[in-house]
Nucleic acid binder design. Structure first.
Lengths: 154, 154
DNA sequence: ATTGATAATGGAAACCATTTTCAATAAGAA
DNA sequence: TTCTTATTGAAAATGGTTTCCATTATCAAT
């Protein structure tokens, strides 16, 4: 993929869902596509703001809301009071889940057990979709506990 | 178990963690033990308030924070702006997970696939604990998507 | 039982991420 | 180009959660 076109191609996706493609939305997609981190709304706003000075934080929230409904983005809550967002179909990053320390809020990504996990998830999603008539777009798996340091501190 | 003693026995647990057992904490434990729903802080406050008029909302938040650190309670975020809390070792309710509609916020509990899930989780927790030196206390699994109604609406 | 150090409490005010409002602007079909 | 209508940004409002602080309660040591 040649550089400079990241985030392109999303126009059809938006229009297909009955929405318009706009400059702010393009920029936001570019930011989301260009990272492998979990960004907060403000993180995204700040990155986008560098490209387009007129970008407003409100638009970021509105677009994220849209993207979530489109199933393109997942929202995470790690318990620190601000939500994080991530593309579901991340081309950049490996599929991963999170370990969260309930004491210091440290977040560890892990990619272990992914094979088992994916297999389990595939079966579960299929079964749950059918039984509960849900159109499942994404999922979250998080483990909570005490990290090494906090364990010793106590 | 004879009635009227629900929530008792927690004193040791608190003291064991270096905290004191107090009336408000007893009442909060009673509320949490006595429900199989996911209560918000305010839900808990209102229930507790019936037993003890002096109960303050601040104390509920503080106690929940404590219980989370103790690994006794899990905090859920279903995306409606208020967190929900639930005992991890629920004697009342079956272990379950959640399906959440990203459009209307409807929450469906499911207990299907629990056997596979439990098996997977057991292995994952053991492996992750060792590898990342985490003391895992609880976990969250949530599926997001569109419920039957919202699917048709579009 | 009494004491005393200090953890815990409640109420009000502060915080701050997220929403709402609204007039101005831009997208895209005709 | 024109017109309809979705989208936008800024500021204000919202509301769940935290912080502050003076008062009260717990519980280990006496």
């Amino acid at each position: 993929m040649p550089g400079g076109r990241m985030g392109a191609g999303w126009g059809g996706r938006f229009r297909g869902c009955g929405y318009r493609m706009t400059i702010p939305r393009q920029i936001i997609m570019k930011v989301l596509s260009g990272t492998d981190k979990h960004l907060s709304a403000e993180d995204i706003y700040m990155k986008a703001h560098k490209t387009n000075q007129d970008m407003g934080l409100t638009t970021v929230y509105r677009t994220l809301e849209l993207l979530m409904q489109m199933g393109v983005v997942v929202k995470f809550d790690f318990g620190d009071g601000r939500a994080r967002y991530e593309l579901t179909e991340g081309t950049k990053s490996k599929h991963h889940h999170h370990l969260i320390c309930t004491s210091c809020n440290r977040i560890v990504e892990y990619t272990d057990f992914m094979d088992e996990e994916m297999e389990f998830l595939k079966r579960a999603e299929k079964g749950l979709s059918k039984k509960h008539k849900f159109d499942i777009k994404s999922h979250i798996i998080q483990f909570y506990g005490l990290c090494d340091k906090c364990k010793k501190k106590k």
